[in-house]
Amino acid sequence: MRLLVLLWSLGPLLWQLRTSLLRPEALVAPLLEGNPWTLANYQLVLSGDPPFWRYLGNSTLVGLATTLLTLLLAVPCAYGLQKLRGPLRWGVGLALVGAAMFPTVLLFLALLEIARSFGLANNLLTLSLPYTALSLPLAVLLLRAAFADLPGELEDAARLEGLDLGQRLQHVLLPLLAPALASTAILVFLASWNEYAIALTWISRNDLLTLPIAIARIGGGSVFTIPYGAFAAATVLGSLPLLLLVLLAQRSIVSGLTRGAVKG
């Protein structure tokens, strides 16, 4: 049963991997003779100009900048919201949910206009600005819930010991929020990693493209061929960093860190 669920979830990924390793002829019909396996797709992707690693680096940079900026803004906001009482708390919460659900598609033209008039186009760091704006509502909501889960007496104890707000965050609250911070960071990073439309309109220089755009630009031998194998290879390569990230973060996502704070 477990195996079945595992296969069900991993199926598409494994199929992708298989596609990336097959010769184009082997994709459409079972090969009658010869070895169907090849690394040619990977060679094709990696030998492009600029090299594929460049795109990986671009996406990583944008992702890191977005994640960092989002957390820097979301943590104080979530803390403040959690302390807020009265109707404003309700109103801001509702506004955040509304913002999180706003259809991004409606923003492209306006964002493009902004990029043009402020000269923000073709810059990887400024690309993280709209990404941050889009990720912020969800990040704030997630972190606010995490703050709410912390026992209030913990912070009271720290206040009595003379820790100011910054010290309380640094020594008590944020270490306890590490799992929530890690999972929020991963969500934000993922959103930035996969974003297509804004990157498409904001970035035109070839060496600054992010992964999704770069992958879409991979061309076949002629206009009539679709390079399935190369697409798959690029996707596999593009997923590797994410896989690594999640594996690394897994340790800090492990819950139960707050156990023992209050009566266990």
Partner: peptide, 20 residues
């Protein structure tokens, strides 16, 4: 005075020990 400047010690019902 703020709570940190009153030299008050408090034992909470939940003990409020820093779990980490």
């Amino acid at each position: 005075r703020g709570p940190g400047e009153r030299q008050v010690a408090m034992v909470f019902q939940s003990y409020a020990l820093y779990p980490h």
